[in-house]
């Protein structure tokens, strides 16, 4: 058996009904195909600006993005590139951001011994433990001494320097790894990750407010849509509705619950923020 199979067997959801009858799906769902290169280019004008952001978001929400262009499109969804930017402006932005990233890294590397000790204790110790066990079954991170693991490590360490209020929390490596594997460039990935983090539950750290709010929504959804299950949770006493089993779903947006392809499809749909003015 492969390691992937071993890792996944104990934790994954099984998909009971991969295809829903049209009566149960959104009426527009079947109208969208996966966004491929040709479709993507049609969304851009001659200067490389996204013509109609809303249409793009909608297409991604319903159809997803072809793997071959994820690295190009994700930076828009993660708010690294603005939709109005031209190709030329994006190139300039990348150069400027690369410099900024180098400065953040420089700041990390020039800490005083005392600062470094504190940083090691609060951040680096855990990052070092986590990067070597994040997505290692993915081809991109496979094998001993893989330089991409080192990139992931630097991104997380630099992020903790950039945003010391968040620092590093376990789970963040799970979020950054798929982005690095698609975007490839270390600096670009860093800035995409910065955008992503602003929309995650990690930002409420160290308080639990965002998690509590999400769980509250989930409880209400359950009560409205699956009353019997909701009542079962109620019957379990005070622990049932705490829904400890959902924390990871929310924190990592189902990354550990579905096979990677499906999980990333969910991520994209969420990042598209279609018809949703919150979060």
């Amino acid at each position: 058996r492969t390691q992937v199979a071993d890792e996944k067997t104990c934790m994954q959801f099984s998909i009971r009904r991969p295809k829903l009858p049209s009566s149960e799906t959104h009426p527009e769902e079947s109208m969208y195909r996966r966004l491929d290169v040709a479709a993507w280019l049609r969304h851009l004008n001659a200067l490389g600006q996204v013509e109609e952001e809303y249409k793009l978001r909608k297409a991604i929400f319903f159809g997803g993005i072809d793997v071959s262009i994820r690295g190009e499109v994700w930076p828009f969804l993660l708010r690294y590139y603005s939709h109005e930017s031209t190709s030329e402006e994006r190139e300039a932005l990348r150069m400027q951001k690369r410099k900024e990233y180098a400065e953040i890294q420089q700041k990390r590397l020039s800490m005083t011994p005392e600062e470094h000790r504190a940083f090691w204790r609060n951040v680096q110790f855990t990052v070092d433990k986590d990067v070597v066990r994040t997505d290692r079954s993915n081809q991109f991170f496979r094998g001993e001494g893989n330089p991409n693991v080192e990139s992931m490590r630097r991104i997380l360490l630099n992020y903790a320097v950039y945003n010391p209020a968040i620092g590093y929390s376990q789970g963040m490596s799970d979020l950054v790894a798929p982005i690095l594997a698609e975007v490839l460039d270390e600096s670009d990935t860093f800035w995409c990750f910065v955008g992503l983090m602003q929309n995650t539950i990690f930002v409420s750290s160290p308080r639990d407010e965002d998690m509590e709010k999400q769980l509250l929504y989930l409880r209400e959804l359950l009560r409205l849509t699956h009353l019997r299950f909701y009542q079962h949770l109620v019957s379990l006493g005070e622990d049932g509705l705490q829904m400890l089993f959902c924390h990871r779903w929310l924190l990592l947006c189902f990354k550990r619950e579905f096979p990677e392809a499906e999980a990333l499809r969910i991520w994209e749909a969420c990042w598209a923020h279609y018809q949703k003015g919150y979060v």
Binding site: Q3, K129, R133, R256
Partner: peptide, 25 residues
Amino acid sequence: SGVGKTCLLCRFTDNEFHSSHISTI
């Protein structure tokens, strides 16, 4: 983190060991 809690558990319940386990969230 990383002391091997999940590995202890997997060894005990399933008699399995994987050195590169994923972090528990």
